Amino acid sequence: MSCACRSRASEHAARAQPQLNGNGELIHLLSVEGLPRAIVTQILDTAANFASVNDREVKKLPLLRGKSVFNLFFENSTRTRTTFEIAAKRLSADVLNLDIARSSASKGESLLDTIANLSAMAADLFVVRHGESGAPHLIARHVAPHVHVINAGDGRHAHPTQGLLDMYTIRHYKQDFSRLVVAIVGDVLHSRVARSDIHGLMTLGCAEVRVVGPRTLVPCDLAQMGVRVCHTLQEGLADADVVIMLRLQNERMSGALLPSSQEYFKCFGLTPEKLQRAKPDAIVMHPGPINRGVEIDSAVVDGRQSVILPQVGFGIAVRMAVMSIVAGNDA
């Protein structure tokens, strides 16, 4: 193959899968969808190596020393933003949290102009949360080859690091995905976490993925992906190994999709009694924020089967893994 043909093939591959370089290595993390199983496993294995950093007296590693990480959160966040900041600092990066409300974006500066100006300040890695689906992809197509982009949640599209930390949590407690029944319960229609979880579970060979919710909150195309759709909690929880609860995303809803939050809790809220339909050793997860008494009862949140707080903690190790991997690969 000529140099020109190789160049065109490389450009086509980059457009088709912008997360990977010509060698198939991760240079941006934009979505779990399309990631090879080997890369997902690499991230989880690397995170497992970083998990012990929490137990060390000195919690810093030099892997990103001299690198600048810019956190650009155009939407509110507690867990994601905080764990990204902790992860970057534990890798010895210089971290800048941009205050969007006080930035030039609030004066009408375009997203790409904001990125161009921050790139001129020697940014090496952008962590981006944005209300518009596709915003991190747009940024990744316009940054310099040495700059990396991590999607911290874009619109209703994807939340890849949350999906990966959910996979890490499941693997930590259950090990073998090929034997698992996983139920994702709630407002799947508006959930970028659910999308990332579904792609992650499929990639890792989960035996059965169930989506559970009212018809108004479940996308109509899931069955085509091999997902089992259930419209009652009783069916969805039967003999499940893992239960992932989702909050109602009222801020993304238009129109009356539910009669009331009380009616929703009656039908789809997870209580200790309803959880008994799952396996006795089933684990309960939630990406947060939790709305107690709406999608989940406090007795479940604080109960013996809940792994919600460990799930949050695992986010540090997973985000350390993602940043260290992408920063170590060239475009």
Results as ranks from 00 to 15, higher is better:
237 L>T: 01
248 L>R: 04
310 P>E: 14
294 V>A: 04
215 R>G: 09
285 M>P: 12
280 P>R: 14
293 G>P: 12
224 Q>F: 04
274 K>V: 14
295 E>S: 03
268 F>P: 02
287 P>Q: 13
278 A>F: 09
246 L>V: 09
272 P>K: 01
276 Q>F: 06
304 R>F: 08
276 Q>I: 12
312 V>T: 07
291 N>C: 07
243 V>P: 05
252 R>V: 06
261 S>F: 06
224 Q>S: 13
295 E>D: 07
223 A>D: 14
263 E>R: 06
231 H>V: 11
303 G>C: 06
249 Q>I: 07
220 C>S: 15
228 R>W: 02
260 S>V: 10
261 S>W: 01
214 P>Q: 04
283 I>E: 15
272 P>R: 02
293 G>N: 01
307 V>C: 14
311 Q>G: 09
275 L>P: 06
265 F>M: 15
280 P>M: 12
318 V>R: 01
217 L>P: 00
245 M>K: 04
216 T>F: 12
246 L>F: 09
222 L>V: 05
233 L>V: 13
241 D>L: 00
228 R>E: 04
243 V>D: 08
267 C>R: 10
290 I>N: 02
295 E>Q: 05
223 A>V: 12
304 R>G: 06
226 G>M: 08
217 L>R: 01
269 G>W: 00
256 A>W: 10
269 G>Y: 00
308 I>G: 04
218 V>P: 08
253 M>N: 12
294 V>W: 00
306 S>L: 01
215 R>Y: 04
229 V>H: 00
262 Q>G: 07
307 V>S: 11
302 D>Y: 08
222 L>I: 07
222 L>H: 05
301 V>Q: 00
271 T>N: 07
235 E>R: 01
232 T>Q: 00
312 V>Y: 01
282 A>D: 13
320 M>L: 05
274 K>C: 15
225 M>Y: 13
219 P>N: 02
246 L>M: 11
279 K>A: 08
219 P>S: 03
310 P>H: 12
276 Q>P: 14
297 D>R: 00
263 E>G: 15
216 T>Q: 15
229 V>C: 00
299 A>Y: 00
220 C>N: 15
272 P>C: 09
290 I>A: 02
298 S>K: 00
309 L>M: 14
272 P>T: 08
240 A>Y: 02
281 D>C: 03
272 P>A: 02
248 L>V: 13
281 D>H: 14
265 F>Q: 15
301 V>R: 01
217 L>H: 02
305 Q>D: 06
255 G>C: 03
318 V>S: 03
287 P>W: 05
261 S>G: 07
249 Q>T: 11
283 I>P: 07
278 A>G: 13
290 I>E: 05
267 C>S: 14
239 D>Q: 10
301 V>M: 02
306 S>W: 01
253 M>L: 14
233 L>Y: 11
237 L>P: 02
214 P>G: 02
300 V>G: 03
308 I>M: 09
244 I>A: 03
226 G>T: 09
306 S>V: 01
243 V>Q: 09
222 L>G: 01
286 H>F: 08
235 E>G: 01
215 R>S: 13
240 A>L: 04
216 T>W: 12
254 S>G: 11
244 I>N: 06
254 S>M: 11
230 C>V: 02
288 G>W: 04
273 E>G: 10
263 E>H: 10
